[in-house]
Design a protein around this nucleic acid. Structure first.
Length: 291
DNA sequence: TAGACGTGGTT
DNA sequence: TAACCAAGTCT
């Protein structure tokens, strides 16, 4: 049967030659190990995830092991990975898996999607990488590669469109190759077809790339908004949570007051952390990670 | 649907 | 150096 996707073979050949060796890609990686890696990798570089993932796997090799802990321990051992509600999500995943799914990470996309913190991308990634399912795995890397190679544009739209999804579906190879195709396109986007500087000289599909063939026209869409961080509630939340992570018991409010000057913003941020379940207030007015 | 949500490395 | 960017999800 002829393959409809001309990118398939060159990308698979490149992946076999150039893929990074990552522990969650080893043949003995469990679905749990893969789920943990996927949540940690959301908006977070591999280099920062590696040590935390390794420590989590040593400490909590199964969902049941994590489920037996208070959620605050997940937050504590999240360290400085960022977006700490992901730690809470992973803890809730562990409890859902042990309570609802017999201790095994579910294999089908719909059930995965029901887990906290697992969205369209992560469900497809786990179903594909852990269970060899056939899914369009659309992350920022894949979207960028397809935008360039097929659509001829430097960057994909800000939010995933139905057209992008349809394109990704149309490129999906047979069940045998779908999982490796998914990880290989992601890897190509991560290592070669990067956001800042596409390394077309190293790209296995440069000869087929619509963007390169068009002379690499620059992005014309609306300016992509800067994130901004200094002085934001996010920065304030980060400071406050760092105090709670570093302490192994309840923290007096004064210790929190000390890390952020603006009292109005500080109270708002602290209330937000409590509302999000990342912190608890005790009767005596002290704070701690959630039990 | 746009904006919130952390953190640190790179250009 | 400030801006950009990193395997997204949720509301």
């Amino acid at each position: 049967m002829p393959e409809r996707n001309p990118l398939l073979n060159p990308v698979l050949e490149w992946y076999a030659r150039c893929a990074r060796e990552l522990p969650w890609r080893e043949p003995d990686a469990t679905p749990w190990a893969i789920l943990v890696s996927e949540i940690m990798l959301q908006q977070t570089p591999v280099a920062r995830v590696l040590p935390v993932w390794t420590e989590w796997m040593r400490r909590w090799p199964t969902p049941a092991a994590l489920a037996a802990e208070p959620p605050g321990e997940a937050v504590r051992h999240w360290g400085r990975l960022g977006y700490p509600r992901r730690a809470l999500n992973l803890h809730a995943c562990a409890r859902a898996v042990t309570d609802l799914h017999g201790g095994e990470v579910p294999s089908d996309h719909a059930t995965l999607l029901s887990l906290p913190g697992v969205g369209e991308y992560t469900a497809a990634a786990v179903a594909s990488f852990a269970f060899r399912g056939r899914h369009a795995v659309l992350d920022t890397n894949v979207r960028r590669v397809l935008a360039r190679a097929v659509r001829g544009e430097e960057y994909p739209p800000k939010a995933t469109t139905a057209a992008e999804r349809a394109l990704a579906e149309s490129l999906l190879p047979g069940p045998e190759d779908a999982p490796v195709w998914a990880v290989a396109v992601m890897e190509l986007g991560a290592l070669v077809c990067t956001a800042r500087a596409a390394r077309c000289a190293d790209c296995p599909i440069s000869g087929l790339c619509a963007w390169r063939l068009a002379g690499k026209p620059p992005y014309e869409g609306p300016a992509r908004r800067g994130q901004g961080y200094a002085g934001t509630d996010r920065q304030c939340r980060g400071r406050l949570l760092a105090v709670l992570r570093g302490a192994h018991g309840p923290v007096p409010k004064a210790a929190l007051d000390a890390v952020w000057d603006d009292a109005v913003q500080r109270e708002r941020a602290l209330d937000g952390l409590v509302a999000d379940g990342l912190a608890e207030v005790l009767d005596d007015g002290t704070y701690r990670l959630p039990l």
